[in-house]
Every structure is written in C-alpha cells, then in structure tokens.
Simulated scan of single mutants.
Amino acid sequence: MGTSLLAEVSGSLGAVGYGLAAIGPGIGVGLVFAAYIQATARQPESAGLTRTYLFLGFVLIEALALLAIAFGFVFTTTQGAGS
C-alpha cells in the first residue's frame, strides 16, 4: 500500500499570491463605487464633484493591484534564478 499523497502543490505560487492580493483592491473598488452612489443619491447636484474623487480613488486602488502583480512576477523570477 505504500505512502499515499493527499495533496501536492505544483506550479507558480506567485499566481496564488496575486489571487490573494487581488482581494483587497476588489473590496476597495466596491467601497469607492458604493460611496459614490450613496453620495449621488443623497445630493444629486454634487455628482460632478464626487465623480472626480471616484475616478481618483479607482485609479489609486488599481495601481496598487498592478504593483501586486508586478511584484509577483519579480519575486517569482528572482526565486527561480537562485535554485
């Protein structure tokens, strides 16, 4: 009967790391859009002003997500070079 293998992790763990890192920006974008919708519903005349803040917040959050995927590739390649 020998040794039975229950689970084996193979492939790039950088993809798993980015998957975990994408949870934060996903929640952040949801919060930013929810706040914009709520602000516009409360005061429709301020939609133009708050739209600027909406896009600014969205861009900053997505920039962090892009940094996370870039660091995932950087750490994956540097880790494989030393082995």
Score class of each variant (00 low, 15 high):
residue 16 V to Q: 07
residue 74 V to P: 00
residue 33 F to T: 12
residue 3 T to L: 12
residue 66 L to H: 07
residue 73 F to Q: 06
residue 54 L to E: 00
residue 19 G to C: 09
residue 66 L to C: 10
residue 4 S to A: 10
residue 5 L to P: 04
residue 74 V to W: 03
residue 72 G to M: 11
residue 2 G to C: 04
residue 66 L to E: 07
residue 6 L to N: 03
residue 67 L to S: 03
residue 54 L to D: 00
residue 80 G to F: 03
residue 68 A to H: 02
residue 49 L to M: 10
residue 9 V to S: 07
residue 57 G to I: 04
residue 4 S to G: 06
residue 47 A to N: 10
residue 35 A to R: 13
residue 64 L to E: 07
residue 41 A to P: 04
residue 42 R to S: 14
residue 50 T to M: 12
residue 2 G to P: 11
residue 6 L to M: 05
residue 8 E to D: 07
residue 83 S to K: 08
residue 46 S to Y: 04
residue 10 S to W: 03
residue 14 G to P: 00
residue 41 A to W: 08
residue 31 L to I: 06
residue 31 L to K: 14
residue 23 I to N: 07
residue 23 I to G: 07
residue 20 L to P: 05
residue 15 A to C: 11
residue 21 A to M: 02
residue 43 Q to C: 06
residue 59 V to L: 14
residue 21 A to N: 00
residue 43 Q to F: 11
residue 76 T to E: 01
residue 25 P to I: 14
residue 35 A to G: 04
residue 62 E to V: 09
residue 8 E to A: 06
residue 8 E to K: 07
residue 16 V to A: 15
residue 52 T to S: 03
residue 30 G to N: 09
residue 71 F to S: 02
residue 45 E to I: 06
residue 18 Y to P: 05
residue 19 G to W: 05
residue 77 T to A: 11
residue 23 I to D: 06
residue 63 A to C: 13
residue 41 A to I: 11
residue 5 L to E: 11
residue 56 L to E: 06
residue 64 L to A: 15
residue 47 A to E: 13
residue 22 A to W: 06
residue 12 S to N: 01
residue 66 L to Q: 06
residue 18 Y to S: 11
residue 24 G to E: 12
residue 13 L to K: 13
residue 80 G to C: 03
residue 64 L to F: 15
residue 39 A to M: 08
residue 32 V to Y: 04
residue 11 G to Q: 09
residue 65 A to M: 03
residue 3 T to Q: 12
residue 50 T to G: 09
residue 57 G to L: 02
residue 40 T to G: 11
residue 60 L to I: 15
residue 37 I to V: 12
residue 77 T to C: 03
residue 30 G to M: 07
residue 31 L to P: 01
residue 20 L to R: 11
residue 47 A to T: 14
residue 12 S to K: 01
residue 26 G to E: 01
residue 1 M to G: 14
residue 58 F to C: 09
residue 26 G to N: 00
residue 66 L to G: 13
residue 83 S to Y: 10
residue 36 Y to S: 09
residue 65 A to D: 03
residue 53 Y to A: 13
residue 56 L to Q: 05
residue 69 I to Q: 02
residue 48 G to D: 13
residue 63 A to V: 15
